[in-house]
């Protein structure tokens, strides 16, 4: 793990952008009492170092096409987790598929159009010969994004 060193100004910038990624650098500069160029430079440096991967908007999937977010927990016969993982990744609608330690061997999150599609996906996964069990959770209401996402820590070295 390669930690990127950040100071309190970087954290201030990140915090403000986490709440509103479109906040003008000038406004951030005024709040932080530094020049706009400083903010611009800091932002670009954090991008270059890979700490900031980009900016995005958060859309409520349910407002478009009645989408459902589901989390999927899969139990697999040892040692076939990797094999199942590869197949699950290929299913349409998946956006996060991972090996896991805990109750399940593989966990996934998917955005699916309707209950029918949820059932199809569940059956597809359950049909893999190495899969023992598939649990599905359907996310209801609006998913809440943490206003802070991540604690940033100033470099203490």
């Amino acid at each position: 793990m390669s930690d990127v060193k950040i100071d309190s100004l970087d954290i201030k910038i990140l915090r403000m952008l986490q709440g509103d990624a479109r906040k003008p650098f000038q406004e951030i500069a005024e709040t932080a009492k530094v020049s706009t160029d400083t903010i611009k430079n800091r932002y670009q440096t954090m991008m270059k170092k890979g700490l900031i991967k980009g900016t995005t908007i958060v859309i409520d999937p349910k407002e478009i096409d009645q989408n459902h977010i589901v989390s999927i927990g899969i139990s697999v016969t040892n040692p076939y987790a990797e094999q199942v993982l590869t197949s699950v990744k290929k299913i349409t609608g998946m956006f996060a598929v991972t090996r896991a330690v805990g109750r399940y061997d593989i966990e996934a999150i998917a955005i699916l159009r309707d209950i029918e599609q949820i059932s199809t996906v569940k059956n597809t996964i359950a049909d893999f010969p190495q899969v023992q069990n598939v649990d599905i959770e359907i996310w209801v209401d609006k998913p809440l994004l943490c206003p802070k996402n991540f604690e940033f820590q100033e470099d203490h070295q």
Binding site: L17, Q18, T56, I57
Partner: peptide, 9 residues
């Protein structure tokens, strides 16, 4: 439809 915007870290 747009809930918010954020920086991806």
């Amino acid at each position: 439809i747009i809930l918010s915007s954020t920086v991806v870290v």
